[in-house]
Simulated scan of single mutants.
Amino acid sequence: MTTKLKAVAAAAFAVAGLSITAAQAQDVTLRMAHIYTPGNIWYDAAEAYKQAVEERSEGAITIDIDHSGMTGDWPQAIEGLLIGTNDIVLQSVGTLDRYDTIAGIEAYPYLVRDLDHFKETYFGDLGRELYGEIREKTGFKIIGAGYRGARHMTSSVEVRSVEDLEGVKLRVPPLRMYRMTWEMLGASPVPMGVDELFTSMQQGVVDGQENPLEIVESQKFDEVQDYVVETAHVIGAMTFIFNGDRFEQLPEDVQQVLQEEGDRVMLEFSDRMADDEQALKEALQERGMEFIEVDRSAFQARLGDMPAEFPELADWVERIQASAE
């Protein structure tokens, strides 16, 4: 980690010892929604955020959590931020792509290189500027960035090269960035929610999907998929999403606690996720999945027209890529 990143992390952890009084916080109760189930790392991250905020505020801020998609899938949960049924949603930055393309930068293929570049992108000045633009254009306030590990393709059919993708029906999240990526790679993307994905793969409606290994493992996709194709096409960012206007109506000290603890928790779980990636791979191999190494440069070469499809992101792509050099 660079000296700059060490300073960012140190600052995030240094403020964790501060607290606010019940009078200052005015007994704020917030409702969080997410789709992750017990045993998943992001389920644990939500619980850690709840605990950290409640302890630091001495109980003046309470976070109630609806987990496992209890109140709907992630698009419904984010809609809940707009109508006021949710205050916080734990989900990736790119899920806000449906509100403005700027948020789709998170899912831009082969953009973020590794964990250190991830932290440079999201926890420095560049990240603050990016989140500010997302706030301005989508209306949502984003806190923290959790390294999800690389997204890989899984499949019930053998894929050893980019040419093998021809005709493969691949489930993608219902977001334009993912659909365009896999169309350019030669697959036949099928947008659908994750709640129907397992059954769709089991019944052959789709041949495969793409996600970080923690999703593959926790959702037991090994039961309906034979291969993990190590495309590593996206390194995504999990985050805490708020309705921007309502967040700014909270007392400033409450905003500070939510911001600082969110950053701290996501830094902590980024490192935990990085430590877990190899163990997840080994667990899936033990369950019978075959991991296939592919020529990622050949995949990336197929995506040469991506900048033309998303010209509004060109400046951000250039700046993020340059920050890795």
Score class of each variant (00 low, 15 high):
residue 4 K to C: 10
residue 10 A to E: 15
residue 10 A to D: 15
residue 10 A to Y: 05
residue 11 A to W: 04
residue 13 F to G: 15
residue 17 G to R: 05
residue 27 D to S: 12
residue 27 D to A: 07
residue 30 L to N: 04
residue 36 Y to K: 00
residue 36 Y to C: 03
residue 38 P to G: 00
residue 44 D to T: 09
residue 48 A to V: 11
residue 50 K to D: 13
residue 51 Q to H: 12
residue 51 Q to I: 14
residue 53 V to Q: 02
residue 53 V to I: 04
residue 59 G to T: 12
residue 66 D to P: 04
residue 68 S to V: 03
residue 69 G to Y: 01
residue 72 G to E: 10
residue 73 D to T: 10
residue 75 P to L: 06
residue 76 Q to N: 15
residue 79 E to G: 08
residue 82 L to P: 00
residue 86 N to E: 12
residue 87 D to G: 08
residue 87 D to C: 08
residue 88 I to W: 10
residue 89 V to N: 04
residue 90 L to K: 02
residue 92 S to N: 12
residue 93 V to N: 12
residue 94 G to P: 04
residue 97 D to M: 00
residue 105 I to T: 00
residue 106 E to V: 01
residue 110 Y to T: 00
residue 111 L to F: 02
residue 113 R to I: 06
residue 114 D to C: 00
residue 116 D to S: 13
residue 117 H to Q: 10
residue 120 E to S: 07
residue 121 T to C: 03
residue 123 F to A: 01
residue 129 E to A: 13
residue 132 G to Y: 01
residue 134 I to A: 11
residue 135 R to W: 09
residue 136 E to P: 09
residue 139 G to A: 04
residue 142 I to K: 12
residue 148 R to K: 09
residue 149 G to I: 02
residue 150 A to E: 14
residue 156 S to Q: 04
residue 157 V to R: 09
residue 158 E to A: 10
residue 159 V to L: 13
residue 167 G to T: 09
residue 171 R to C: 11
residue 172 V to I: 05
residue 174 P to T: 11
residue 178 Y to D: 04
residue 178 Y to F: 04
residue 185 L to G: 01
residue 187 A to V: 06
residue 188 S to H: 03
residue 190 V to P: 00
residue 191 P to T: 00
residue 197 L to W: 03
residue 197 L to D: 12
residue 200 S to I: 07
residue 202 Q to M: 11
residue 203 Q to M: 10
residue 203 Q to K: 12
residue 204 G to L: 08
residue 204 G to R: 08
residue 204 G to P: 02
residue 205 V to H: 06
residue 207 D to S: 11
residue 208 G to I: 00
residue 209 Q to D: 15
residue 209 Q to F: 14
residue 210 E to R: 07
residue 211 N to W: 02
residue 218 S to F: 04
residue 218 S to C: 07
residue 220 K to Q: 12
residue 224 V to F: 08
residue 224 V to P: 11
residue 228 V to H: 02
residue 232 A to W: 03
residue 234 V to F: 00
residue 235 I to N: 05
residue 236 G to A: 15
residue 240 F to M: 10
residue 242 F to R: 06
residue 244 G to D: 15
residue 246 R to W: 09
residue 247 F to E: 07
residue 248 E to A: 08
residue 248 E to F: 12
residue 249 Q to G: 11
residue 253 D to S: 13
residue 254 V to S: 00
residue 255 Q to R: 08
residue 255 Q to H: 01
residue 259 Q to C: 09
residue 259 Q to A: 11
residue 262 G to Q: 03
residue 262 G to S: 05
residue 267 L to M: 15
residue 268 E to D: 14
residue 271 D to R: 00
residue 274 A to F: 10
residue 275 D to I: 07
residue 278 Q to N: 08
residue 285 Q to T: 15
residue 289 M to P: 15
residue 289 M to D: 15
residue 289 M to S: 14
residue 289 M to L: 13
residue 290 E to M: 09
residue 296 R to N: 14
residue 298 A to P: 04
residue 298 A to F: 04
residue 304 G to K: 02
residue 306 M to S: 14
residue 306 M to C: 09
residue 309 E to V: 11
residue 312 E to P: 13
residue 314 A to K: 10
residue 315 D to T: 13
residue 316 W to Y: 09
residue 317 V to R: 05
residue 317 V to A: 07
residue 318 E to K: 12
residue 319 R to T: 14
residue 321 Q to P: 03
residue 323 S to R: 02
